[in-house]
Design a binder for these strands. Structure first.
Lengths: 215, 215
DNA sequence: GTCAACCATCTTGTATACAAGAATATGACT
DNA sequence: AGTCATATTCTTGTATACAAGATGGTTGAC
């Protein structure tokens, strides 16, 4: 927390962009940000470059960097990609997941159930994240695991919103059960299929929510 | 080609790392690189940050950045991930690919065939790349397409080596035919399965090659 | 009055200077 | 002679100064 001002600024900016503090297309002024964070332009520039590399902003040469909030189409594409990534993880995990992994998965699922029983949305969110991450881990492929984690993190703010749907948590739980069962049985195709649907539906729900908000 | 020194240096460094000019764990000296490229440290630092973000180097705070060549295990993981990504593209492309896309795909495949007939390895490499990229495009998902392109680019230097295998090109052609047929028929599962195998075998061949070279 | 060209200003991109931390080498003490 | 502590030096991280390009306004001409 001492050195690496640039890292802190990058994380701070990521959070701000995630939270929607910046509108799409808004220019991120190096000088203003530098003044705001009380540092010089250099660390700010490094932080901005990270945002650009992460796809959260675009850089136009000699013009500056502009925040780039994904539109509805891109969000749907991202959810679809996430679904395919998770399906791949599930496919591989069905063959490779060790008993301890299945144990942790069941534990996370139990955590989800408890959270639903308590009507604890925040708790469910956390346990659900752990549940999915356990599947990534179970794929036995660190590279794929990291890619999945990256996209999961990127979609985090959008998944959060969509939990409000009435009845969504219950349906989600049922799907979790099916996922655990398929992985326990070593059913690669089944696990992939259920996971794909499980994630795809999130994107669709989000779209519905957006559409209803637009009115 | 005028402004953006940093971009040029980043690309140059990427190429050098790809070509294996730098060994794994070697430190990339900002000052030496700056002197070599005839610029100051600032653009070099920006370029190095990009390498780090791309995963081709790791940065240790207050120590510098060190090139990180993927080991055999990570390479296999990357190929496996590529296989799953391509399978996903194929799955979606089976339902979404327009006639023009199928046309371009068949054209690229014909290019592959011609290159094999000419025993033109370099030509085959290019046409094969176009063939696969057409599938990414056919998935009708720009985000997924970009992810696939990114990983394809990252694996480029390793796929190149593996073409030398006797008989690999012929087998590859047969698989291409199967892929085209499945996509034409709209057979999502078939396309995914063939593509997955088609890419996975490349990783395995590469491993064999590495093992034989190690002796 | 309107359009275009030119100039001023602002912003990014680059260079250099400065500060802080880490590694290494050297010296003193046991 | 070996080990620990300290100082020096080298490297990264940050700040500031400078250059080049782009934007917008203003002014002049038609």
């Amino acid at each position: 927390m001492k050195s690496n001002h640039a890292d802190q600024i990058a994380e701070s900016l990521e959070q701000l962009v995630f939270k929607g503090e910046y509108e799409d297309g808004q220019r991120l002024d190096e000088i203003k940000l530098a003044a705001h964070y009380g540092v010089s332009r250099t660390p700010v520039r490094e932080a901005l470059q990270r945002l650009v590399m992460s796809g959260m902003a675009v850089q136009i040469p000699r013009r500056g960097v502009f925040v780039r909030q994904p539109g509805p189409v891109e969000l749907l594409e991202m959810f679809e990609t996430m679904a395919e990534l998770e399906a791949a993880c599930g496919r591989l995990a069905a063959a490779r997941m060790p008993d301890e992994g299945l144990e942790r998965l069941a534990q996370a699922n139990q955590g989800c159930k408890d959270a639903v029983a308590r009507e604890d949305a925040a708790g469910y969110y956390l346990e659900n994240e752990a549940f999915h991450q356990e599947i990534y881990r179970g794929a036995g492929n660190s590279f794929l695991q990291n890619e999945a984690l990256r996209l999961q993190n990127r979609l985090k703010p959008y998944r959060r919103v969509q939990l409000r749907f009435r009845g969504r948590m219950a349906q989600s739980l049922a799907e979790h059960e099916a996922i655990v069962a398929a992985l326990r049985a070593g059913d690669a195709q089944g696990a992939a299929q259920v996971l794909r649907g499980h994630v795809t539906v999130q994107g669709e729900r989000f779209q519905q929510l957006m559409a209803s908000l637009k009115k």
